[in-house]
Amino acid sequence: MAATRSGGEQVPGVWTKELLNSAQGDSFSLLRLAAGGECALTGSAEDRILVLDGRLSIAADGTGRAADHRSGAYAALPGDRNVVSSADGALALVLTGRRLGAPADDVFSPQGWQESGPGQWFRLLLDVTFDENFDERVVGLSYFEPGSSSPRHPHHTAHRFLFLDGEADDELVFPDGTRRTAHRSKGDFVDYPHPIEHQTFSGTGCTILFLHEPIPTAEQ
């Protein structure tokens, strides 16, 4: 997690916002740096930083060797303690958890996407053999073309979504049959518990970061 305080004082030009800290060990935190902002970031090589906007420089503390990462980069941390900075300002998502996948230079590029339905595409951010229901642990990106929709579906998982751009209407179906439609847009973070079913329609098109976390069964 990014340290935004030094000696008890707020570090100028650095803000963090925790979106998730789950019992399964996952955490999502937004990190925003103003132009010239710099902070310490502790973690491990298993953690990931997804650059959402701008450009980040990441260096292992004390080495002086920094790597630059542009929007779309899915980067690993080079050390246990790191220095993260941005000359012009940046927004990133810091992810911790199990098997978050190999780093990539640009996860928003056309390469690596698979079609999941009419007008819908996905790209996994971790290496996993999954079933067609996405009922295991999955972390990835989903893209809806304008006017596309997903059919109503359940998962035996918790649903976690961060809307990266665009807008969508998400119809939720609760176990008692109650239905509710929620309008989502860029910046919305959603944590749906099991066993909610849902279906999504996007008139504008949208890109979503998603994480499915399996629900333990009695046999596990």
Rank of each mutant, 00 (worst) to 15 (best):
A104S: 10
L30A: 05
P154Q: 03
L20C: 08
D188T: 13
G101I: 00
A182K: 11
P78I: 08
R55S: 14
H198R: 11
A59H: 01
P146R: 07
R160I: 13
H153C: 11
G62K: 02
L91S: 06
K17D: 01
N21R: 11
L100P: 00
V139N: 01
R5C: 14
A59W: 04
N133L: 15
E9S: 10
W15F: 12
A158Q: 06
E145N: 07
V128W: 02
R184Q: 14
P103C: 09
V51R: 00
R32P: 02
Q220A: 15
H194R: 10
T96G: 12
R160G: 10
E38Y: 03
L209N: 00
N82T: 07
L77D: 01
A66I: 03
T200A: 05
P103K: 04
L93D: 05
S57I: 07
R123P: 00
R98N: 12
Y74S: 01
R98E: 11
S57C: 11
G79P: 02
R160Y: 10
A45I: 13
C206E: 02
P193W: 09
G62Q: 06
Q120H: 10
H156L: 08
Q10G: 09
G177P: 05
H156D: 05
A158Y: 03
A40Q: 11
G147F: 08
T16A: 06
P78F: 05
T204G: 07
Q111Y: 07
S185G: 08
L19H: 05
V139K: 00
C206M: 10
D80G: 15
D131T: 08
S148L: 04
A3Y: 07
C39H: 01
